[in-house]
Amino acid sequence: MRDDEVPQEGNATLGGQRKAVYARAADGRLHLVSSAGWEVEEIVTRQAVDEFHKLAEAARQRVLAGTSVALEYHMYRARMDIPLLAQATGIWQWRVRRHLRPAVFARLTARLRARYATALGITPAQLEQLP
């Protein structure tokens, strides 16, 4: 990649920040050049972000339909899935899965709820409802 090939088209997912990338100067030497972003990166980053949005939205619909609990929505909002939430809380995956059932969640102790809330970076009150 030559200096003038360094992508500067802007990548919205960088939030206005710029990255340093290596490119070849006129004398053939590689050096760091500031890049405003590459569309390719934006596409693949957006893809991952959108996937979590989609999962969170589907979870929201399930919560509204009464077949799941807000915990599932908050999990996807925090860009986690069940294995990751299980690791972050130290709760077995099968238990996490079980806790997503409204009847089971309703009986959860305050301590368990607090564990979920902490892992997701929200308060226990937020955990119980959709925003």
Binding site: A12, L14, G15, Q17, T45, R46, V49, M80, L84
Partner: peptide, 8 residues
């Protein structure tokens, strides 16, 4: 870190 790049 920009919001969109914050993954685990």
């Amino acid at each position: 870190i920009p919001e969109d790049l914050r993954f685990h």
